[in-house]
């Protein structure tokens, strides 16, 4: 399997030079292969979300290189990053980050609005994804009327609408009970079987103990402590 994501000595400092400066991650180097399911595990504040954001091009490293599909994205101009975000990644946020007061289907269709794909085609695609995720009966509901599990599935559906190669999920089971967590993990497993590369940031053992997880990268205090590969230490 070829390497789809690579970070080289990546450091991220928020508010550098200010009184509230925070060094979120330090000197992180990892590799993720195409079609892999990787978990970034660690306690709160360990830098998992920051690393996920760096990989997903929604923030830039202070130092180091982030290579996606062989291209260093760390220094790319914003307009090129947008294109990469749109075509390569599907992001599932910890807080779902769905836009309240618009319908579920509109939220799911949103990533493809600034494209020249016809609205009817986008709608068809969204309906098909919703069908697969079992939320097609909620398509016209406003987001705030959905349960936590339904919101999470809507967020996953939105991340899939642009048919991305890589899905990045930040604490996807944080607000869900065991049954719903199980359901969400089954969805990720199916997506992986369809060939998607999946990176999940979590501190929930329920996730990283799953069979289909191929690697676990353990983080603590902004640095990589350990990388576990199918029960074998690396």
């Amino acid at each position: 399997m070829d390497i789809i994501i690579k970070t080289e000595n990546v450091t991220k400092i928020f508010n550098p030079g200010m009184s509230d400066e925070v060094k979120a991650i330090t000197d992180v180097s990892i590799e993720i292969k195409r079609g892999e399911v990787v978990v970034l595990k660690g306690p709160s504040g360990s830098g998992k979300t920051t690393l996920l954001s760096l990989i997903g091009c929604i923030t830039r490293p202070t130092e180091g290189r982030v290579i996606v599909n062989g291209k260093n994205v760390a220094k790319l101009q914003e307009r090129f990053l947008t294109g990469i975000r749109q075509k390569t990644f599907g992001f599932v946020f910890q807080q779902f980050n769905l836009i309240r007061s618009i319908s579920v289907i509109e939220n799911i269709m949103l990533p493809l609005y600034p494209t020249n794909i016809k609205l009817s085609a986008i709608k068809k695609r969204a309906e098909s994804i919703m069908e697969k995720l079992g939320i097609s009966n909620k398509k016209d509901f406003k987001v705030q009327r959905l349960s936590g599990g339904e919101q999470q599935r809507a967020a996953i559906a939105r991340s899939l609408i642009n048919e991305p190669e890589i899905i990045l999920a930040d604490e996807p089971t944080a607000h869900l009970d065991t049954n719903l967590s199980e359901e969400i993990m089954r969805i990720f497993q199916r997506l992986n079987e369809d060939g998607k590369t999946i990176v999940i940031a979590t501190h929930d053992p329920f996730i990283y103990e799953r069979q289909f997880i191929q690697r676990t990268i353990e983080m603590r205090d902004g640095v990589v402590k350990n990388i576990l590969n199918k029960n074998h230490d690396v």
Binding site: I58, R79, T82, K87, N97, I99, R158
Partner: peptide, 16 residues
């Protein structure tokens, strides 16, 4: 602000 952040994160350009 959050809405703008979400739109950018899901692939909207600054121009959009």
């Amino acid at each position: 602000r959050q809405e703008i952040g979400i739109l950018k994160a899901i692939g909207w350009e600054t121009g959009d």
